[in-house]
Amino acid sequence: MSEYKGVMVLGEITEGKLAPITIELLGIGRRLANDLGEELSLLLMGGKAGVLAREAIAYGANKVYVAEDSLFDEYNSDTYTQWISNFCQKTMPSILLIGHTDIGCDLAPRLNGRLRGGLAMDAVNLSIDPSTKLLVSTRPIFGGNAYAKVVSRFARPQMATVRTKIFPPAERDDSRQGEIVSVAEKVDPSIIKAKVIDRIKEEFEGVKLEDAEVIVSGGHGIGSAKNFELLWELARLLGGTVGATRRACDEGWVPVTRQIGQSGKVVSPKLYIAVALSGAMSHIVGCLGSKCIVAINKDPEANIFNVAHFGIVADYKEVLPVLIEKFKEQRSP
């Protein structure tokens, strides 16, 4: 297995730039490569991938593989799996890091199936075991109630999809030197079986959940779609937006694109107001990064109080209207 060497990052390009997750992966990838005393490389795919190679070196890559083919500009599971698995069989990285993004979530497990490697999905921490030199990936299990450390002793590459915004972005240093390798192999479009025929962007009212500084989030205890209007009123007043738990989305009270938690979005606003939600771990993992969590719940034993900074034990229907009034007063002195 010693023929497998180095840490490779699978790059993503959004709107012609290195995606934030790619810069984060170069940061943690650099650290892992240093711990191993091995090289950090980056794979960039896309019609205009080459122009980003210098920048990637400044972010810490020793080597940037550039596959310039406009067929890569739109992600396709069939072509990406085929091409990247061929590429990895030639380059033989010991560690392959992929973002836990739309592309990564679809690609990584399939690529792993093809390469017969060892994959940990949704890693929130990565390190090198000092004695075995193996990659140790920490990932949530049981809906975030616990975490597991996963290693791959026998299979290569050791792979992980890494959650976004967990690791700080790599520091840019334009004096860094590196190698740019152009990869000539083209994609064979005839292997495409599953084809994307349409892409629909969800129109969001107000700010996007991921960008919001204030989120007012409701759970099953809200009781109806109509009752969510109260949450909207508070959110708008504070320049924020509304989120919800899986159960509230399941009921159809809130669109599923507003779901926060393990199978929804991971958010980290300045203020997270959790209303009438018990705080199932699968929800909490989606909002734990918030600067301040306020919990409003009738049940003093609700788990949300274990993670909140401020708590109010009360019926939200009594508290929210006065809270809205008080915020209004405070805003217009």
Binding site: A120, Y147, V151, A155, N306, A308, F310, E325
Partner: peptide, 28 residues
Amino acid sequence: HTEITEIFIPTRERKCEMIPGATPAEVA
């Protein structure tokens, strides 16, 4: 292909400050 070497429950030391008040208006 993969092995679990450790499982753990993260410790959270956050202490929730309960907001006092006799009426909803006071609490708010």
